[in-house]
Design a protein around this nucleic acid. Structure first.
Lengths: 153, 153
DNA sequence: TATTGTTATACTCTATAACTATA
DNA sequence: TATAGTTATAGAGTATAACAATA
């Protein structure tokens, strides 16, 4: 009612907060030649090694069409590799190359740095609570292919 | 669709959660001819009536160039109006028309509906905590959308 | 000289639909 | 017939840079 932004509604608050993070991220990642879409695909793939493009698209919430040029670019940069699924020759399995894993390390480090900057005004206890609540929320979303907190599998 | 990307980092969690909301919003608002960018501009303007385009761009975190076509479209749809600032004839003051205020009502109602759907799995107490933490976080970010007492700079 | 907003141009991201090759 | 991925095409959104009017 008074502390924000005009935004009082939970979804709006969520978006405003995420925007603060992603705007800073866009600049930082851009310096490393990593667009938001590429970062999203790489990190998603990192949590689902060997995933099919179709599943990646579903998880990312985009059309299949959106994934192809992203994978093309990442593959030609040597960060990911396509492998035909022997059990379904229509599908590709995607894996991170060593260079891709290196990119993941840089991404993780950058995300950490950005978080440090951006959440510096929030007490550590609040940051923890926020993280737990967000995980709890994401866990309530139906149809998730990857159990929360399970990490890469 | 799933929004759990297996993320463990706070910024990533924030983005994944916001994505879950905005993806549903995109579909719902689209049925009303309202794109995310237009919704963002309208709601931001609603919280800062009479704001200049330059200030809107700053608050939204985009370049001035991005605002012009948005305002053009919203003006030609009769939702916002440009008025030359008498104190600085370079600048436009933007206001919501009656139709624009009507759009705000529909937006608010839709956002509420979407939140009900999307956060239905989260206990009300957790929703409250999440909202408070997000507000607290946004309050620590200077230049975020509209701390009500600081006003446009 | 600095700033507000516009024009010109280009890039990223994504959608829909038609096509292929598998299933 | 249905599905995985690609190609073709189109549109939204935004950035940078050059320009106009105004400060």
């Amino acid at each position: 009612m008074s502390s924000d932004v005009g935004a009082t509604e939970l979804g709006e608050l969520l978006q405003a907060a995420a925007r603060a993070f992603s705007q800073r991220g866009r600049a930082r990642f851009g310096e490393h030649g990593l667009s938001p879409a590429r970062v999203r695909l790489l990190t998603t793939l990192h949590h689902r090694p060997g995933g099919r493009m179709r599943d990646l698209a579903d998880v990312l919430g985009v059309s299949g069409r959106a994934v192809t040029p992203l994978v093309d670019a990442l593959e030609s940069d040597g960060l990911v590799a396509r492998t035909t699924d022997p059990d379904d020759r229509r599908a590709f399995r995607l894996t991170l190359t060593d260079a891709g894993l290196g990119a993941i390390e840089r991404i993780t480090s950058l995300q950490h740095t950005i978080s440090e900057e951006i959440f510096s005004g929030l007490p550590a206890a609040d940051r923890d609570r926020l993280g737990h609540l967000l995980k709890a929320f994401l866990a309530t979303m139906p149809g998730q292919p990857c159990p929360p907190d399970s990490g890469p599998r």
